[in-house]
C-alpha cells in the first residue's frame, strides 16, 4: 500500500447521521471473493432508482460533486455490519479521506487498513470547510496527515487527533502483518507461558 502524507481534492457533502454500512454497500454485493470493483455499487440504493436509472437528487450524482475524493458527513458514519466491502467501495469510487463528526469503531479500523484517512472534526469545524456562501459545495480541501491538519480554501487550518501508531502505519504504507511478524518471539513466549489451546 502506498503511503499517505497529504491529499488535496474536491469534497462531496453527505449531510446525514448514522450512515450504516448496509447503505454504503448493500448485501447483494458482498458475494464476490476479491477486493476489486466495488465502487460501482457504492451507496447503490441511494444512487440508483433502478439498475440503469440514476437518482438525480442523490448528493454524489450532482455535477458539483463529480470527481470528489473527500467525503464529508455527520455522526456515527459506518455503523452496523463489519463488512470491509464498505471501505473497498469508497476507495474504489475514488475517496481517499472521510471527514465526519464521528465514526463507528469497526469501520474506522477498516478505513485505516485500506489507506483511507478517517478524520474526526466537530460539527462547527465541518461547517467552516464549505466554500464561501455554500452549504453544499467544497471546491478544495487539503489534508495533511503529518501535521494532522485539514486546510480549507481560505487557508483556515483545523487540527485533528490521530493515533500515533496508525499515523505511522498510514504515512509509511506499511504492511501491518509484516510488522507484527517481527514480534514472533514475543507471541511464541506468550503461547508458551499461557499454553494457549
Amino acid at each position: 500500500m502506498s503511503g499517505f502524507k497529504t491529499h488535496t481534492g474536491k469534497a462531496a457533502s453527505l449531510k446525514r447521521d448514522h450512515v450504516d454500512t448496509d447503505q454504503i454497500i448493500p448485501k447483494q454485493f458482498l458475494k464476490k471473493i476479491d477486493k476489486a470493483g466495488y465502487g460501482e455499487f457504492l451507496f447503490y440504493d441511494w444512487r440508483y432508482h433502478s439498475q440503469d436509472q440514476e437518482n438525480p437528487d442523490f448528493e454524489l450524482n450532482k455535477e458539483e460533486t463529480k470527481g470528489s475524493s473527500i467525503l464529508i458527513t455527520g455522526q456515527n458514519f459506518g455503523c452496523g455490519s463489519s463488512r470491509e466491502h464498505a471501505p473497498w467501495a469508497l476507495k474504489d469510487y475514488g475517496f481517499h479521506v472521510i471527514i465526519a463528526e464521528s465514526f463507528a469503531d469497526i469501520f474506522f479500523n477498516n478505513c485505516v487498513k485500506n489507506g483511507i484517512l478517517p478524520i474526526r472534526l466537530s460539527e462547527k469545524e465541518i461547517q467552516q470547510l464549505y466554500t464561501d456562501g455554500s452549504d453544499t459545495v467544497i471546491n478544495q480541501l487539503t489534508v495533511n496527515l503529518e501535521d494532522q491538519q485539514v486546510i480549507n480554501e481560505q487557508g483556515d487550518r483545523f487540527d485533528f487527533d490521530f493515533d500515533p501508531y496508525w499515523k505511522k502505519m498510514l504515512i509509511n504504507g506499511w504492511d501491518e502483518i509484516s510488522v507484527t511478524l517481527q514480534y514472533e518471539d514475543k507471541i511464541k513466549q506468550y503461547e508458551k507461558e499461557r499454553i494457549v489451546s
Binding site: 469497526i106 479500523n109 501491518e176
Partner: peptide, 8 residues
Amino acid sequence: IGTSEVEH
C-alpha cells in the same frame, strides 16, 4: 473485525 484484521 474487518477482513484485513481477519487476515492479520
